[in-house]
Design a protein around this nucleic acid. Structure first.
Lengths: 215, 215, 215, 215
DNA sequence: TCGTAAGCGAGACGGTACGTCGCGTCTTGTG
DNA sequence: CACAAGACGCGACGTACCGTCTCGCTTACGA
């Protein structure tokens, strides 16, 4: 979600930028409890597994974590932000940024990884929940969009390299191409009109490449 | 939402599948108040415009409509179902089922219409809200998926006609092709990484057709 | 509750005087369904047994009786009135009006009968419920008070006969004496500080008579 | 309701037995708002005066007190419990526990005080309402019975002192004697067959004493 | 080494909306 | 007309979470 290096030391690596960016005053005061923090994220993950995003509540997370509600609110401003920290990272941030020298291969790797989310139903549900929340919570939407863009960036770079190498059409519309990678994926994930089968990943990429080469 | 022809006359075009299917017992019982019904839908639409899907509440709808909350609950089992009736119809049901004899032209008409939803921000927000709700409310999800399928059917038929006429590749994968029509649209609508511009509709279709012809 | 002879024929013998007393118009119109009536009272009695006065509802009675709610409302204006018909009669109206020639004996018979209500828990609960309702429903209160007076009358007459025969003090305050018969009974029935034991009836009467003879 | 002496200072004299007995954990947690509490009781009392027990609602009390409904429910589990705190105390707790050395005099004082409730119609109605509620709400009944017993205790003690002093029959049945004090009072209060006149208090006591001396 | 400044648990608070229940009324048939 | 069916407006219910707010206690710096 965030590069590890932009973390204020002692900030736990996952707090949202709610605390003033000006390197935090830090003049005395009890230090943040790493434990409370961790328990919160663990409880969130556990509850996501058990009851799903929709029925997750901050109240419930706090109770499960043995943490005060106010402590949760101190570090995360919404359920979505909490879930994003607890799960988003695990789900997708660790996705590869493949660079094999072969654009088709890179794409294949990336898309396979993308589709593999459905093998972890809770992660898939978390993705759905985050997307849903982004529609309903105007404060969360920009943060989600930003995350989407960061994911797009990986694919865009990958395609740009391919185009530079001449593997793809020169006049490629990058943004549109990236939409063709993610669009059908999200659509199936959300609309559920057909199952999202990791086995389809290859076919998806093949058809994609056909279009991108011709252009 | 529903085929216009399966409407019982005087049933307002929005009957819920809650009442026993078809012929409704109809032996005694006060007849359903067309007025209460209509007022509810109008209030829903009005509030959608004013405060948006996220802040819409059944309580608020009932109050605005001058209708008892229990009456709303009698006919709609969730906010999403209510919005679907109040808005879904207006939003998409009236979309065309073009059949000009030219597949490319048909697609263009359909997609243009699809993209035009963003010219009505409230409708766009309603669409987003419904999709979000489908992720959060397991009871609503199937109903939404069904509606998605009905929309897909229109495009599938259109493409099938084109394939039969030889305008498209014979070995066309229909489902995947339909995903390419709707996927990028929904993706942009929901993720907001880039604006959804009706002017892009043509380009979208052109690229689509290129792929579908080659296959 | 009412003498059988004051019934308009065809009026079922237990309807409350809601219909005008002027021997009912009776000019065409469907005749009152004896069956609906009876089923209502039976359902009331059954539900009293099962769930008690407190949780009894007119809605529930109607459903159980297979009768329309409006039919219940047509003949009884409140739950209390309904219960009074369904149960009150059985509970207390059939109590004896003893006249053995011996005032002490008469009292003993009467009080024993009074206390025996606790052997029928449902009846006891109905009595409690009616008393409670009389406190909460101003419309029902007078009807209940009237019934109380009718019960008092029996005892008053009994005592008056005794006084005339010289078995009791001549300067007896009748109303107060009757209060001493019913007061402690109701008090124990309602306050539940001590169980109401039919075996106590004799002791109650004995102490009572001691006081009434001396005066 | 409770002995005045077992009140934690600042606890308003009306603490519910809902919180763990005695010393309350008191490790963290916002302190209970004495103000919210007091406003609730005041609003209850005010509404009792204005609309009476029957039409009192918790919803209404909360609104009037400017307090959240959930706060009311946190401290009182039913309307009856609320009224008992708001009014019961005022009505009867402050009743005297006379000990003049003369049993007859003590009784007279007590009964006069008892009858005087009818001079405050709202209190009388509250008493009726509480008794009614005790019949209808099984959860409340024991609490009410307990209160009744505490009131009886006062009279029992008074009579026991008299008996010890030889003012009353030695073989006095205390429980029955107490029933004779309260029974007729409640009976008249509830059944309304005759008005409850404070002027009758003396006569009531006189007749009572006659019986208790003779026994 | 002490005071000041957090962080933390607990949990009460004012709110908002929920979804349900029963009321008593009404509007439809049908008999 | 009575009756069944059942929809309607209404009002309150009791619950669930929200996000905020004291509390008392603990921890860590910096003066």
């Amino acid at each position: 979600m965030q590069d590890p290096q932009d973390q204020t030391p002692g900030d736990g690596g996952d707090s949202r930028p709610r605390r003033p960016e000006q390197t935090r005053r830090r003049t005395g005061g009890r230090i943040r409890s790493e434990d409370a923090h961790e328990q919160t994220l663990l409880a969130t993950a556990a509850l996501l597994e058990e009851i799903g995003y929709g029925r997750l509540t901050i109240e419930g997370v706090a109770a499960r974590a043995g943490v005060a509600k106010s402590t949760v609110y101190r570090w995360w401003k919404s359920k979505a932000a909490l879930v994003m920290d607890a799960y988003g990272l695990a789900v997708t941030q660790r996705m590869p940024e493949p660079d094999s020298g072969d654009c088709a291969e890179d794409l294949r790797i990336f898309v396979r990884q993308l589709y593999s989310v459905v093998e972890h139903p809770t992660r898939a549900e978390a993705l759905r929940g985050l997307m849903a929340e982004a529609q309903l919570d105007p404060e969360f939407a920009p943060r989600f969009t930003e995350w989407v863009r960061s994911r797009r960036q990986v694919v865009a770079a990958l395609l740009a390299r391919g185009a530079a190498r001449g593997e793809l059409a020169a006049d490629l519309d990058l943004e549109h191409a990236v939409d063709l990678v993610f669009g059908p994926f999200w659509y199936r994930l959300l609309a559920r009109h057909l199952p999202l089968d990791p086995a389809d990943a290859s076919a998806h990429v093949d058809r994609l490449l056909a279009g991108l080469r011709a252009s």
